[in-house]
């Protein structure tokens, strides 16, 4: 099986400070991988390095091969088409990830237009608008026409995140990176968005890199996990194994915390 993302020996530095150290991570086609860690563990930086979007002042060394292209050391201009076709990212806060002054339909229109041009598909206005509508229906938004005409602040947080997911889908990416996509959402909305993402990843044949700190949330949607702490991988393996028999002390702490809350909820399921 060929890999969509292959990270080898990745290190991220800010000046002398090592933020991510010697990280290896491979995501095969259709694989669903979770990257678990707390704030400052380097998990989000890893995702940014994977797409060549590290903020200025941070330098990456090692190798990141995204859909056959080496990202580290590449010119930004060479990465732009890759970001559209190979990978799309959904962020934690949809309110800042969407342009506040642009109708949401128009925000999806752009990536659809770019993808169709690149793929040589018909890119007439009507074709694109029809696809935007299909995408909004795809992410289970009620009344897609109203949403398409609305500005981000006019809809709920859950609906905004669905729009952000629709934007990501518009690119037909091989890999979907989701960076704490449900942290800002209500519990019931979180459950719905997780189910939606799980379904979309399966049906669209995408690989998934799901980044989070909340163990049960990540466990719900991925098959394998990699646990990071202070920039280093401390443990990795299938979700069931890691949660049932954590090897590293830090993973044990995390599992114990999650178990404690889980026990408090009791038998209610």
């Amino acid at each position: 099986m060929s890999a969509v993302l292959e990270i080898e020996n990745l290190s991220v530095r800010s000046g002398e400070t090592l933020l991510v150290s010697n990280l290896d991570l491979t995501i095969g086609e259709n694989a669903r991988v979770g990257l678990i860690g707390e704030s400052g563990s380097g998990k989000s930086l890893t995702a940014l390095a994977a797409t060549g979007l590290l903020p200025p002042g941070l330098t990456a060394t090692g190798s990141v091969v995204l859909d056959g292209t080496e990202v580290i050391g590449a010119r930004d201009a060479d990465l732009v088409p890759l970001r559209g076709s190979a990978v799309a990212t959904v962020f934690q806060e949809p309110l800042t990830a969407l342009d506040p002054l642009m109708r949401m339909g128009s925000q999806i229109y752009q990536p659809v237009l770019r993808r169709r041009r690149r793929a040589g598909e018909p890119a007439a206005r009507a074709d694109i608008e029809a696809e935007v509508r299909r995408l909004l229906e795809r992410v289970a938004l009620p009344d897609p026409d109203r949403i398409a005409n609305a500005y981000p602040f006019e809809v709920s947080g859950g609906q905004r995140q669905r729009v952000a997911i629709a934007m990501a889908l518009a690119c037909h990416p091989k890999l979907l990176i989701a960076d704490e996509p449900t942290t800002a959402l209500d519990v019931t909305t979180q459950a719905e968005v997780l189910d939606l993402m799980a379904g979309l990843v399966r049906e669209e044949g995408m690989a998934l890199l799901f980044i989070g700190h909340d163990l049960p949330v990540v466990a719900r949607i991925v098959d394998d996990v990699t646990v990071m702490r202070r920039g280093e991988v401390v443990e990795r393996g299938p979700v069931g194994t890691v949660l049932a028999r954590p090897e590293h002390d830090y993973t044990r702490t995390l599992v114990a915390a999650a178990d404690a809350f889980d026990r408090a909820l009791g038998a209610a399921r």
């Binding site: 949660l243 889980d262 909820l265």
Partner: peptide
């Protein structure tokens, strides 16, 4: 839980496998 909303809320909480 008696009320349907309480049930929905409870069902939405991510649980450990």
């Amino acid at each position: 839980p008696q009320h349907p909303y309480t049930r929905k809320l409870l069902a939405s909480v991510p649980r450990m496998p």
